[in-house]
Design a protein around this nucleic acid. Structure first.
Lengths: 238, 238
DNA sequence: TCGTGAGTTTGCGCCAGAGCAAATTCACGA
DNA sequence: TCGTGAATTTGCTCTGGCGCAAACTCACGA
């Protein structure tokens, strides 16, 4: 078992880990091999910070499994979730936008597994591997788009619409079809959802209760199943 | 006089236009010359869209003079200002983040002048000119940071704090020292400020009135002078 | 099996700030 | 110089959703 502070290079990472992931999918076997040999693999428990805001951006990551929230912590200690990152995406790529510290903290939402590389290799990845730059800048573009959307939502929408939107986004990103609906396939508390929508856990709880009575969602502890996504779409647009 | 739709290449753009601007400052005279010869120069009246959200990102821009707001327009027609861009910065660099349409609309806040180039030249700029990529990605990083900050502000601060912050940011970016304080050196309405802080013009007006009574600001139509920045800092932190 | 604490639900009161309405002031062009 | 419309100010009302408090419920470990 890994303990929290161990970080070990596994004897031999399987090449199939990367071959189907967009930033690497164009590369040949030898290149993948080199990349894997330089990588460090680590498992993270749920609720652990992979890296923290303000720290030296000394590594960049590829999330292989799990789910990560990118959060900022205000001077008064409140957490605000800026975005969610699913498995298969790059993470901590501060270097791509010319920063040498991480602009936010990355917390695991579930147990997760990530590869990482020292940031000094970044330039060689960008220059040496065909398609790598293109794909990472597309990722970046996608995230900028998401942040933009979040700003507009916060600026113009009511709490009810924001929560509905957040749920829709979550089931799109990580929904798992189960009987009777689509479930968010990692544990998520009312608190988490409130940090994602800039409201309080009380208000989220009230909204979910209301929706449950209308048959739109079903929820247990840390589990939310959306039964009627269309109804949420209606709500989210008012 | 240019009319709104003319876009003319001036006979000879002066090289000093670019030599002191970061993305170009490392280049030699010949390179600058080439870049200028490929550029189109245009003047924009205040309140004009330089490019619009969703349109083909067919050109990228360098703002030489003036001031631009990057805004998004919601389905219901409200405008939300995502960020402000001062003279000397690149604009419309969707291509840098792998997008082929503009993710937002750029509106002039004052009369402005910008150079622009066809997007198909982007890659050659990035690859051909030393330091260009680094600087533009730094710009991008800066903007991502600003957006992050804005998300946190919207999520956690009261209206009064947001307006105070917005004013502070504006005088930092474009403040002009005048007797008795620092003035924002372009015309800005209460409405503009409300779109920047996600509130209503009425609330902004009330806040400014209050601050004026306390001697913190002075304001005429479309003009705001901050007399006591420190007081605003206090307010912004509550 | 039974605590125990984390997560959730619900009620109640309150207030920041939006919405609406109207008066007022200023800048600019004729 | 005056008229006109845009920008601003201000008063009043109303409400979404926050803060506080308390009860409840489940999952897990001893």
């Amino acid at each position: 078992m890994d303990d929290l502070h161990s970080r070990k290079t596994l004897p031999r990472l399987d090449e199939s880990l990367l071959t189907h992931l967009p930033p690497f999918s164009k590369l040949d076997k030898r290149q993948i091999r080199t990349i894997l040999d330089q990588a460090t693999s680590r498992r993270y428990d749920a609720g652990i910070a992979i890296f923290e805001e303000g720290h030296d951006a000394d590594r960049f990551y590829m999330l292989l499994d799990g789910y990560v929230r990118v959060v900022r912590i205000t001077p008064t200690g409140e957490q605000v979730t800026a975005l969610h990152i699913p498995a298969g995406q790059l993470l901590g790529i501060a270097r791509a936008i010319g920063r040498d510290t991480y602009p936010a903290t990355a917390m695991t939402a579930t147990e997760s597994i990530a590869l990482s590389w020292p940031t000094r290799l970044w330039d060689s990845f960008v220059q040496g591997y065909d398609g790598f730059a293109t794909v990472t800048y597309k990722t970046l573009g996608h995230r900028v788009g998401e942040m933009n959307t979040r700003i507009v939502e916060l600026a113009t929408q009511q709490v009810e619409q924001r929560v509905a939107n957040a749920l829709l986004r979550l089931i799109n990103q990580t929904g798992r079809k189960v009987e009777g609906g689509i479930e968010i396939d990692f544990p998520i508390t009312r608190q988490d959802l409130s940090e994602l929508t800039a409201t309080t856990l009380h208000t989220v709880s009230r909204l979910l209760s209301g929706w449950e009575k209308q048959g739109i969602v079903e929820s247990k502890r840390k589990r939310i199943k959306v039964c009627d996504p269309h109804a949420l779409v209606i709500i989210s647009q008012v």
